[in-house]
């Protein structure tokens, strides 16, 4: 009968989706498009893989959604799990509309109660956590990266080739420019040091790096520090449109603590903030806070820690 279909063009995320799909208590079918290596990895993780090959453009959201729609019909699945990275989010809405399905994106947790799938996601820009479920038979669920572990190798996988009707594309790719990617992922940090606009000058960064090193931590930042000041790559952004981190300890330097940032460090076991404004919202969500000017504190802290 009904089943669950998973798809992400990102193999690591596709493996995470297999783990999530395992919770649903239904047959799982993993779709893979034009990616033989991914199909193999999913098979090695024990999945029934349906591999689609053909002249498809991954950049054309409509085309990919069309493939998924046809596959869902042919494989008889009602629930489709996608990754909530940028590609996956864009795809979710298009596919949901094609299927007349309800859709939730940025899912942070899932609880299956019988036939109901309860999902947690941020609401009000992160000020609240909403528990939501989809009432329609067809469901499109896009799950945030790292919520689930990647599926481990397991036996019994298979690869089936699968053909869908091709459609004409109105989107053509002129150029692809790789972004330089970080070798570290702040979402994995045990100790996280967050640089906010209150760090004020780049001259303070060597002290921040030294403190991070002595704590064995990774440096992340608030959004404007990456997007406006370009001090770090966008992969270092903590928060709603960046990474959700749950380190053992977070040291927050000169961040005001607006909701969109706060959702990214809410999961820290211990939260320590340094901010010159006593009334900065971040202080009221900290275990320890210090009201001080970072231009003074950073050099002193660096010396004391080394």
């Amino acid at each position: 009968m009904a089943g669950v279909m998973t798809y992400s063009n990102n193999t690591a995320l596709a493996l995470e989706l297999l783990t999530a799909a395992g919770l649903m208590g239904q047959e799982v079918k993993a779709l893979s498009i034009n990616n033989e290596q991914q199909a193999q990895e999913l098979k090695d993780a024990g999945a029934s893989v349906y591999e689609v090959t053909g002249e498809y453009s991954a950049a054309d959201t409509n085309m990919v959604a069309e493939i998924l729609k046809q596959a869902a019909a042919a494989l008889g699945v009602d629930i489709i799990l996608l990754s909530s990275d940028r590609r996956g989010k864009e795809l979710s809405g298009r596919l949901a509309q094609k299927l007349n399905a309800g859709c939730l994106t940025d899912i942070k947790a899932i609880q299956v109660n019988g036939t109901e799938i309860e999902c947690e996601r941020n609401a009000l820009g992160g000020a609240a956590i909403a528990v939501q479920s989809i009432k329609s038979t067809k469901q499109v669920l896009a799950i945030s990266p790292k919520v689930f572990k990647q599926a481990e190798p397991a036996g019994d996988g298979s690869i089936n080739n699968y053909a869908v009707e091709e459609t004409i594309s109105a989107v053509s790719v002129k150029e692809i420019i790789p972004k330089s990617t970080d070798s570290v992922d702040i979402a994995d940090a045990d100790v996280l040091i967050a640089v906010g606009c209150g760090v004020q000058t780049k001259y303070n960064l060597p002290a921040v790096e030294a403190i991070a090193q002595s704590l064995g931590g990774l440096v992340g930042c608030s959004k404007p520090v990456a997007t406006d000041w370009k001090w770090f790559s966008e992969e270092r952004i903590i928060g709603l449109s960046g990474k959700i981190c749950s380190p053992d300890a977070a040291l927050i330097l000169g961040v005001s603590g607006q909701v969109q940032f706060a959702v990214g460090v809410r999961g820290a076991r211990v939260l320590i903030s340094i901010n010159s404004d006593e009334n900065a919202p971040i202080n009221s969500m900290a275990d320890y806070y210090m009201v001080a000017d970072l231009n003074d504190v950073l050099p002193q802290l660096k010396d004391a820690m080394s």
């Binding site: 950049a59 054309d60 959201t61 409509n62 959604a65 940028r86 989010k89 864009e90 795809l91 979710s92 809405g93 298009r94 949901a96 509309q97 094609k98 859709c103 939730l104 994106t105 940025d106 996601r121 941020n122 609401a123 009000l124 820009g125 594309s169 109105a170 989107v171 709603l240």
Partner: peptide, 23 residues
Amino acid sequence: GDNYSGQMGSRVAEILGLPQAGY
């Protein structure tokens, strides 16, 4: 700003039958 689900553009593109590009 509040829901941040990123669905609306994709859904409307599908209803109107238009190509789309996000982000």
